[in-house]
Amino acid sequence: MTILRNATTKSMEDKAAPDDLHFESVLEAPPAKVWRALTIPDYVAAWLRPAENGIDAAHSPRRDSSEPELVDCRLLAAEAQQMLRYAWSEKMQERILDSVVTFELAPHGEGSTLLRITQGSFVLRPVAANLNQPTMLLKAA
């Protein structure tokens, strides 16, 4: 079951901003297995479309316009089988949404994992008008 809420624990409330998004889910897998799904590139590619793979919206099935065209992430911090933190950048139409995404894992019962995902520190910025990419010129008639 996935839950969206502002702050789930006192420790999260201390460091959470009012606009942060928090998702929690109990997964029927041990933390080691969930950690592999979050860290092995082939497994990550199954649920996240990394920009470094050169995949873009033009080569994917039609999606809702609110979905990101590209996701680019840079690792900021990691604690094995406990926490991953990324600088996250999503290109959405003519804007880029920068944020910080944190994945926290904790044992939950026998063989299960509590996965907490927090996304915050949002900055919305426009896409540069000149991307310094080659342009096509049309021949004047």
Results as ranks from 00 to 15, higher is better:
Ile55Arg: 12
Ile55Lys: 11
Pro41Cys: 04
Thr39Ser: 08
Glu67Gly: 03
Ala32Asn: 11
Ser89Met: 11
Glu90Val: 06
Lys91Tyr: 03
Val101Ala: 08
Pro50Phe: 06
Ala77Cys: 01
Met83Asp: 00
Ala58Asn: 12
Ile40Tyr: 05
Ala58Glu: 14
Ala106Gly: 02
Glu90Ser: 14
Gln81Tyr: 04
Asn53Pro: 00
Glu79Gln: 12
Glu28Asp: 15
Leu70Tyr: 01
Ala29Ile: 02
Glu79Lys: 11
Gln93Ser: 13
Val26Trp: 07
Glu90Ala: 15
Leu38Met: 10
Ser99Leu: 07
Val100Pro: 03
Glu90Arg: 05
Ile55Val: 13
Arg49Trp: 03
Ala78Leu: 07
Ala29Leu: 14
Val100Cys: 02
Met92Gly: 02
Leu38Ile: 04
Ser25Cys: 11
His59Glu: 10
Arg49Ala: 04
Arg62Glu: 14
Cys73Trp: 11
Ile96Pro: 02
Pro61Ile: 11
His59Arg: 14
Ser89Gln: 12
Glu28Phe: 07
Val44Trp: 01
Ser25Asp: 04
Leu75Val: 13
Arg62Ile: 10
Ile55Gln: 13
Glu69Met: 12
Ala77Pro: 01
Arg95Pro: 00
Phe103Pro: 01
Glu69Trp: 07
Asp98Cys: 06
Leu97Gln: 06
Gln93Trp: 06
Tyr43Gly: 00
Ala106Trp: 00
